[in-house]
Simulated scan of single mutants.
Amino acid sequence: MVQEKFTHIYARAAERKGGDEALESMLSVPLSAEQLAAIPDDRWLAAFTQKVFQSGMSWKVVRSKWPNFEEVFFGFDIEKMLLMPNEMWERKATDPAIIRHLGKVMTIPENARMIHQATREYGSFANMVAQWPQQDIIGLWQHLKKHGKRLGGNTGPYTLRVMGKDTFILSGDVEAYLRSTGVIDGGRDTKKSQQATLAAFNDWQQESGRPLCQISQIIAFSTGDNRL
């Protein structure tokens, strides 16, 4: 397989989206390592929790109730989350002010423990994320999946993207492109497929000098049913 040059992918995306200027206006800009490292741990827990609740639910409904989540869970203060007994979690999961889902509510203490452990090792969870090498971004995905709760699939990566960490996303359009060009041919989450995907994105990053998030978006814009 000869990997398609990123210049060709970009040209196709620009043609579909109305030109270079229009395409550039659609692209995300990741935070710097310094900006990432300044994000408090409670904001990471809030972001993971919001994405967990949005999985399989209306994002609009979750966003509309989010101020209630912040109040019910004490602003996602990590120490308070770690001190709450199971009975309190079960009571909070029945609070009509939030979306009542015990399984998803119980991800909060699990992910608080993950964040707390990273804080012990790195000084803060944000430091760990900021220091994680871009060339091994899938390693960070795997860390979230292994040590967190319900952060596998695209939930962890989407949260990282929202928070400003540079990462690509295996959206439906991106996965379809990778399959159609032979980058992957098996299960998306197998070690072989993930390593092949990571190698391809690292090659495109070296070729273009662009952040991974923009490469991912440009690939998505270059294919699928999103032509203007």
Rank of each mutant, 00 (worst) to 15 (best):
G123F: 04
E24W: 13
W132A: 13
E175I: 14
H116K: 15
H8D: 13
R91C: 01
G164A: 03
K191R: 05
L31R: 15
M26W: 11
V72K: 04
L170P: 05
M128K: 08
K146H: 10
G164E: 02
G209D: 08
S25V: 00
V72F: 08
K145R: 15
V183K: 05
G18C: 08
L140A: 01
E15Q: 15
S208P: 06
G182K: 11
D42M: 06
L212H: 05
T167F: 01
F74V: 06
V2A: 09
P109D: 07
W89Y: 07
L151A: 01
K191M: 04
E207M: 05
H116A: 15
E79Y: 07
L160M: 08
I219G: 03
T155V: 15
H143K: 15
E24M: 08
L23I: 03
F221T: 02
W89H: 04
S124L: 14
D95Y: 00
G148T: 12
T190N: 11
T94E: 12
F168V: 05
W132M: 03
L228R: 06
L160Q: 01
K92Y: 14
A22Q: 09
E21G: 06
G172C: 02
D173F: 10
V162R: 12
K192W: 04
K145G: 07
P96V: 03
H116C: 14
Q206R: 14
F74G: 09
F76A: 07
N68A: 14
L36G: 13
G156D: 00
I137N: 06
A11T: 01
S222C: 10
K192H: 10
E121A: 13
R113H: 13
T223Y: 08
V129S: 01
G56H: 07
T223H: 06
A97W: 03
C213F: 00
L27H: 03
W141V: 04
